[in-house]
């Protein structure tokens, strides 16, 4: 992995992430969020995780963010008002982010990571699919996530439905 390329992408991702929380205009913040996702996809691609990189762009940039921005565009007063947080929110946000970063560093440094085996480059999309449907691997978590998403979907419809609407 080229260190110059990695560090320029890393700095880009961090700056874009900071802009998400700092920009007063919510549409611009949304665009920064997409830039962050794109940068993370670039890091995946540099680690030879091509499938993950493509899926990151497809799901996060192409679907989730677009739906998010769509909602922003439909609510006109939100797109034109300047959103500024209060001081207490800034402090609590920074605190939570700092704690998360600290824990992430601790966990990464203390955990024994499995090494060896085939590099990601040789892992085909089909292998990932097989792992998802292998009951000794990820079948149960995969199905759990599917049910969770379904519950969230039904819940969203229930919340959005008007009272007395059949």
């Amino acid at each position: 992995m080229n260190p110059i390329l990695f560090w320029s992408i890393a700095v880009f991702v961090v700056i874009a992430a900071l802009m998400v929380v700092r920009l007063p205009n919510i549409f611009h913040a949304g665009l920064s969020l997409i830039a962050t996702f794109g940068g993370v996809a670039a890091v995946y691609a540099m680690l030879d995780a091509h499938f993950l990189a493509a899926v990151q762009v497809l799901i996060y940039v192409g679907a989730i963010s677009v739906i998010l921005m769509f909602a922003v565009m439909l609510t006109q007063h939100l797109a034109q008002r300047e959103v500024r947080g209060s001081m207490s929110r800034h402090v609590s946000g920074a605190l939570v982010a700092g704690l998360f970063g600290l824990f992430a560093v601790i966990i990464v440094n203390t955990q024994q990571w499995p090494s060896g085996g085939l590099p990601f480059k040789y892992l085909q999309a089909g292998d990932i699919g097989k792992l998802f449907l292998d009951k000794n691997a990820f079948l149960v978590p995969f199905e759990m996530v599917a049910i969770l998403l379904l519950v969230a979907l039904v819940g969203a419809v229930m919340v959005a439905r008007k009272e007395g609407d059949r």
Binding site: A54, V57, L58, G62, V66, F70, A125
Partner: peptide, 21 residues
């Protein structure tokens, strides 16, 4: 790319973003 078709779909979804912008 060994994920060619997924890549193609991912890239085409960026166009949606551009039109939104």
């Amino acid at each position: 790319l060994n994920v060619g078709v997924v890549y193609l779909l991912a890239v085409s979804s960026i166009a949606v973003l551009a039109i939104m912008m």
